[in-house]
Lab assay of single mutants.
Amino acid sequence: AQVHVDGVTYDFDNPEEAEKFAREMAKRKGGTVEVKNDQWHVE
């Protein structure tokens, strides 16, 4: 699973880890999390 944050792509073998990371980053940035094509996007 991939997580996109500020133009940087992070690869995770485990989708749950990807989701956890995406939500944590969004919380830190005060942003939102979107899922597109099985990829997490932190805005």
Rank of each mutant, 00 (worst) to 15 (best):
A1I: 12
A1N: 12
A1T: 14
Q2D: 02
Q2T: 12
Q2N: 04
Q2L: 08
Q2P: 02
Q2R: 12
V3Y: 00
V3I: 03
V3L: 02
V3F: 01
V3E: 00
H4S: 06
H4G: 01
H4W: 13
H4P: 00
H4I: 13
H4V: 14
V5H: 06
V5F: 09
V5N: 02
V5Y: 09
V5A: 06
V5C: 15
V5M: 13
V5K: 01
V5L: 09
V5W: 05
D6A: 07
D6T: 02
D6P: 01
D6W: 05
G7D: 05
G7A: 03
G7S: 04
G7Q: 03
G7W: 02
G7Y: 03
G7N: 06
G7L: 03
G7F: 03
V8I: 13
V8L: 10
V8A: 09
V8K: 12
V8E: 09
V8D: 06
V8P: 00
V8W: 09
V8Y: 10
V8F: 11
V8M: 11
V8C: 14
T9V: 13
T9H: 05
T9S: 06
T9D: 03
T9Y: 08
T9I: 14
Y10S: 01
Y10K: 01
Y10Q: 00
Y10M: 02
Y10F: 10
Y10H: 04
Y10L: 04
Y10I: 06
Y10A: 01
D11Q: 13
D11E: 13
D11V: 14
D11Y: 15
D11A: 12
D11I: 14
D11W: 14
D11L: 14
D11C: 15
F12E: 00
F12Y: 02
F12Q: 00
D13T: 09
D13V: 11
D13Y: 07
D13K: 10
D13L: 10
D13Q: 10
D13N: 10
D13I: 10
D13A: 11
N14A: 07
N14L: 08
N14F: 08
N14D: 13
N14Y: 08
P15A: 13
P15K: 12
P15R: 13
P15I: 08
P15H: 11
P15F: 09
E16D: 12
E16W: 13
E16Y: 11
E16P: 02
E16I: 12
E17R: 05
E17S: 08
E17A: 10
E17W: 04
E17C: 12
E17Y: 04
E17F: 03
E17P: 00
A18R: 02
A18M: 01
A18S: 01
A18E: 00
E19R: 05
E19S: 04
E19G: 04
E19H: 05
K20E: 12
K20F: 08
K20T: 10
K20Y: 10
F21V: 02
F21K: 00
F21Y: 06
F21T: 01
A22Q: 01
A22D: 01
A22T: 00
A22S: 02
A22G: 02
A22I: 02
A22N: 01
A22E: 04
A22K: 02
A22F: 02
R23K: 10
R23A: 09
R23D: 08
R23W: 12
R23H: 13
R23Y: 14
R23V: 12
R23T: 10
R23E: 10
E24K: 06
E24M: 07
E24D: 10
M25L: 11
M25F: 06
M25T: 11
M25G: 01
M25S: 06
M25E: 14
M25K: 02
A26G: 03
A26L: 05
A26I: 07
A26N: 02
K27V: 12
K27I: 14
K27Q: 13
K27N: 12
K27L: 13
R28Q: 14
R28E: 14
R28P: 05
R28S: 13
R28D: 12
K29Y: 15
K29G: 10
K29S: 13
K29P: 07
K29E: 10
K29M: 15
K29V: 15
G30D: 08
G30F: 05
G30H: 08
G30Q: 06
G30W: 04
G30I: 02
G31H: 07
G31A: 09
G31L: 06
G31S: 07
G31Y: 14
T32I: 11
T32N: 07
T32R: 11
T32E: 06
T32A: 06
V33P: 04
V33E: 04
V33W: 05
V33Q: 04
V33N: 02
E34D: 09
E34S: 15
E34Y: 15
E34K: 14
V35L: 14
V35R: 13
V35W: 15
V35Y: 15
V35N: 10
K36T: 08
K36Y: 12
K36P: 03
K36N: 09
K36R: 14
K36C: 14
N37A: 08
N37L: 06
N37D: 12
N37Q: 09
N37M: 07
N37R: 06
N37E: 09
D38V: 04
D38C: 14
D38S: 11
D38Y: 10
Q39N: 07
Q39D: 06
Q39W: 04
Q39L: 07
W40G: 03
W40T: 04
W40K: 05
W40N: 04
W40M: 06
H41W: 14
H41G: 04
H41F: 15
H41D: 04
H41L: 09
H41M: 09
H41R: 08
H41Y: 15
H41P: 03
V42P: 05
V42T: 03
V42A: 03
V42N: 04
V42H: 03
V42E: 02
V42R: 03
V42Q: 04
E43M: 15
E43I: 15
E43H: 15
E43P: 05
E43K: 15
E43V: 15
E43S: 14
E43N: 15
